[in-house]
Design a protein around this nucleic acid. Sequence first.
DNA 1: AAGTTTAAATAAACAATTTAATTCCGTACG
DNA 2: CGTACGGAATTAAATTGTTTATTTAAACTT
Lengths: 164, 164
Amino acid sequence: MSKKKGDKKAKSGKKKDLEGLSAADLAPAITQAARSMRTVLSRSLGESGLYAGQDGVILMLAEEDGLTPGQLAMRLGVKAPTMTRTIGRMEAQGFLERRPDGTDGRLTKVHLTETGLKSVEQIGRTVADCGSLAAKGLSDKEVRTLLKLLKTIEHNLQPALADD
Amino acid sequence: MSKKKGDKKAKSGKKKDLEGLSAADLAPAITQAARSMRTVLSRSLGESGLYAGQDGVILMLAEEDGLTPGQLAMRLGVKAPTMTRTIGRMEAQGFLERRPDGTDGRLTKVHLTETGLKSVEQIGRTVADCGSLAAKGLSDKEVRTLLKLLKTIEHNLQPALADD
DNA sequence: AAGTTTAAATAAACAATTTAATTCCGTACG
DNA sequence: CGTACGGAATTAAATTGTTTATTTAAACTT
């Protein structure tokens, strides 16, 4: 009369003990999973000299160099000021470089440096390895299902994230 | 020779365009979903006067009052220093209170104040609502699947999180 | 052509998190 | 006893992340 674990109906005990769980538990669950992921990723990333959050910038620029801070922020799902500061640090660390646009004076373009380029491969591997570790024991289909559900969640949340 | 989008096999176009996705995309996907969730939750929580991350402490203490910082950190999947700081702020905000243990001088016990207790219900509703918003359009079964997969991920990551 | 509005980048302030290092208390051991 | 070890909490330093406000340049309106 205390734990409040599986005393809803104990319907059939079919799978695990997910009986009483519902959407109300979503926020804590995803928060915690992301925290773990971030910590593990961060530790691995440390060997490359960068922090969790910076990896996306490198990988995005590897796909398309010369993006603006605003574009990077948008694509990485982060607010502009966050990107500005992260770019600043990464520039100081020598991974990338800021250059004015030339035609539009408001724009800044971000380019990978030689150092940044050389790190791309390892970063990509680290991120992928972290994902594989997390997905251990899951089938490809389950992983795709998870990705699809996460995408749905984000799609649902997007309207609530629009800037006033 | 450039986009690397859906040119794996283009098997059958069965569902969506999840063709080329795999575990390698897991880390970014969960990171971004969690970021969105955190922002939305944080904005709603703001009306109660607290920030994302503090809600768990309130809810946990509502379930079991008088936990130590270490226990709270453990149960909320956070490191001890994080909890110390969060508790400090929440104490200053008047939501909780620190009391020495009495029998063991090393321990500190954390108790909800009257204000904290009064906020429990609203916090719980806010967190649940945020989850419901995120899960809009998903069936109960899909939500349970998602929770199960998230739990698996965290289980997989746990060993890598053990303190050296 | 001049003034207003929008858009992009940045600056400042507040929080969460982590790792590494400190302090304090209790217990075990010599 | 007194000293060494271990655990719990805290402090310090670094970074991402958000919100709010400021600057600067382009675009649009009279």
